[in-house]
């Protein structure tokens, strides 16, 4: 082969070696060289506000019917289990409606309450408001109501308006079972009514 042709073919020979190596080098930069940032490390995680484990029940309601047909319906805006267990629930802006078989109704409303499944009762706290279709609108500090029968009692003095006149009493007990078939509102521990004939 002519000496002049040598250099060209040697040049091509070297190219045949160098070019694949260069390609290989280029390809390896795809995965061999480490990227600047590790994507999973700095993903933006949100810092949890409060204890993330706090479950909340929104709009819980509880309904029960007594043997005599009086119905009790308890609803709340939201509730959360007390220390994790579901049998004791702290509920907020509670509304309990006792609908008697004879059509009359007593409603209990309070800012906060503790519903206890074991004793089947609810303790209402804060400004508890008691209204009855017999014309009584009263408030008290604390009240306990049973969930499976018509049985409620205030744990503090109660005051408000009766069908006629202003009204205070030491305690109010709402009972339905034993005394007679009608549900009774029993005000005890001293009762005082002030009735003004001019504006009742």
């Amino acid at each position: 082969m002519a000496p002049r042709g040598d250099t060209y073919s040697r040049f091509v020979g070297w190219l045949k070696l160098l070019l694949p190596l260069a390609a290989l080098a280029l390809l390896s930069t795809l995965f061999l060289l480490p990227r600047g940032t590790e994507p999973t490390i700095d993903l933006p995680f949100m810092q949890g506000s409060g204890s993330p484990g706090r479950e909340q029940i929104v709009g819980p309601n509880f309904a029960g019917t007594t043997a005599k047909g009086d119905q009790l319906r308890l609803t709340a805006e939201r509730a959360e289990p007390v220390d994790g267990a579901l049998d004791r629930i702290r509920a907020f802006s509670l509304d309990a409606a006792l609908d008697m078989a004879d059509g009359s109704r007593v409603t209990l409303r309070s800012a906060e309450g503790l519903v206890d499944e074991n004793t089947r009762s609810a303790d209402l706290e804060g400004a508890v408001e008691i209204t009855s279709t017999t014309g009584y609108v009263m408030t008290t500090e604390r009240m306990r109501t049973a969930l499976d029968r018509i049985e409620a009692e205030t744990l503090a003095p109660v005051s408000g308006k009766g069908p006629a006149g202003e009204f205070t009493a030491g305690r109010l007990v709402i009972t339905g079972e034993e005394s007679s078939d009608d549900v009774q509102l029993l005000f005890t521990d001293g009762v005082k009514l002030v009735y003004d004939p001019k504006d009742p």
Binding site: M100, D102, G103, S104, V106, S132, T133, T134, G135, Y136, G162, P163, G165, A169, I174, D182, V183, Q184, L185, L186, F187, T188, D189, G190, V191, K192, L193, V194, Y195, D196, P197, K198
Partner: peptide, 24 residues
């Protein structure tokens, strides 16, 4: 003055929920 406020005090008051009678 029979228009003066009337005050009723008692140990206990029982109100019948169905017919609303009030018994001191």
């Amino acid at each position: 003055d029979t228009d003066a406020p009337v005050e009723v005090t008692a140990d206990q008051l029982q109100v019948n929920q169905s017919d609303g009678t009030a018994l001191y």
